[in-house]
Simulated scan of single mutants.
Amino acid sequence: MRLFGQTPTPSAKMGLSIIFIFLSLAIFAPWLAPYGESETLAGTWDPPSAQHWLGTDNIGRDIFSRLIYGARMTVAVALATTLLSFVFGTVTGFLAAVGGKWIDLTLSRIVDVMLSIPLLIFALIILSVFGSSIPVLILTIAILDATRVFRLARAVAMNISVTEFVEVARLRGEGLWWIIRREVLPNAAPPMIAEFGLRFCFNFLFVAGLSFLGLGIQPPLADWGGMVRDNAQAISFGLMAPMWPALAIALMTIGINLVVDWVLSINSRPSGASAEL
């Protein structure tokens, strides 16, 4: 198995395996879950049994089934958020780097204003005003996260924009978007791919955190952060109900970080092969 032209390290293989398992659960949730996402089946916080492998939650729903459905919702929202934030952040960051002084100044000051407000407070205000529907949740987090992507994309593109091949493209009369698409983007791809993994990890945890606060994915939809909140009181009775979604969040985060560390190690290796004399 080879990715990016390199064989994954053992830790990267473990991370890829974890991600593959959770993605499979997310895609095939309706066929893998033994019960419905919101189906009440038994009593409150029943212990694990042959019918309910991980027990039941605060209103008698099967925890194992909700974990599977929660993978679909939590991962899908985090992935959609990260993709959207990268479109916004990368395009504006590259535009700021190669578009000239005034474009750079305008976009940078807008981002500085947004970054001056704590991320969680900004998100709580927007979600409290506009509600916590899935589209609003995705768009809110994507716009806020795009400011972080903008910073990296601008810094990377700044270094590329002063290289000789970009200057040659300008002298040839190539347009701004041609330079971004054909010169800047291919050379900025490796660090941006690594950053994508880090931002996905952050958004994944952020979505779970908002759901834990009651402003993320709303019932009856299952998500891991909301499952921890719903079953938090079970810890007082020595029950494992809130630990299963918390463990799923931790495992997914670890898996992503293992893969990102491997990608970063590839990008940090010196380029160029030694020639035989």
Results as ranks from 00 to 15, higher is better:
137 L>Q: 08
19 I>S: 03
26 A>S: 14
49 S>P: 11
52 H>C: 08
189 A>N: 04
106 T>I: 14
126 I>G: 01
32 L>N: 06
91 V>A: 15
190 P>L: 08
35 Y>S: 07
201 C>Q: 15
120 L>Y: 01
20 F>A: 15
224 W>C: 08
170 R>T: 03
54 L>N: 06
261 D>Y: 01
259 V>T: 11
168 V>S: 12
239 L>Y: 12
181 R>V: 08
120 L>N: 06
88 F>S: 01
268 S>K: 11
259 V>K: 01
47 P>D: 05
208 A>T: 06
76 A>Q: 08
160 I>Q: 09
154 R>S: 10
13 K>N: 12
253 T>A: 10
120 L>S: 06
277 L>R: 07
168 V>W: 00
73 M>R: 11
248 A>T: 14
48 P>N: 05
23 L>R: 00
253 T>V: 13
96 A>R: 03
158 M>T: 10
213 L>F: 03
275 A>R: 15
206 F>Y: 11
71 A>N: 10
173 G>F: 12
168 V>R: 09
74 T>I: 06
173 G>T: 08
174 E>I: 02
101 K>F: 11
256 I>H: 02
135 P>G: 04
23 L>E: 04
255 G>M: 09
266 I>E: 10
13 K>E: 10
169 A>R: 12
80 A>P: 01
273 A>S: 14
142 A>L: 09
246 A>Q: 04
42 A>P: 02
271 S>G: 13
137 L>H: 10
155 A>W: 02
228 V>C: 00
232 A>R: 08
20 F>K: 04
263 V>Q: 07
185 L>H: 02
116 S>Y: 03
161 S>G: 06
272 G>F: 14
261 D>I: 01
1 M>I: 13
152 L>Y: 07
241 A>W: 03
120 L>T: 00
148 R>H: 13
192 M>F: 03
109 R>I: 12
233 Q>T: 11
87 V>Y: 04
172 R>I: 09
130 F>Q: 06
23 L>P: 02
125 I>A: 12
141 I>Q: 04
149 V>T: 12
175 G>Y: 00
39 E>V: 08
260 V>P: 00
243 M>Y: 09
2 R>A: 11
15 G>Y: 09
265 S>Q: 07
231 N>H: 04
166 V>G: 04
207 V>N: 06
95 L>D: 05
28 F>E: 03
73 M>H: 10
207 V>P: 08
91 V>T: 11
48 P>I: 10
172 R>T: 04
100 G>H: 06
35 Y>H: 15
51 Q>R: 14
272 G>V: 05
108 S>P: 01
130 F>T: 05
32 L>F: 14
99 G>C: 07
234 A>V: 06
34 P>I: 12
192 M>I: 14
44 T>V: 15
250 A>W: 08
144 L>D: 10
26 A>M: 13
158 M>D: 12
21 I>Y: 05
92 T>S: 15
209 G>R: 01
158 M>I: 02
88 F>W: 13
225 G>M: 07
30 P>E: 11
277 L>Y: 01
96 A>G: 05
38 S>E: 10
274 S>R: 15
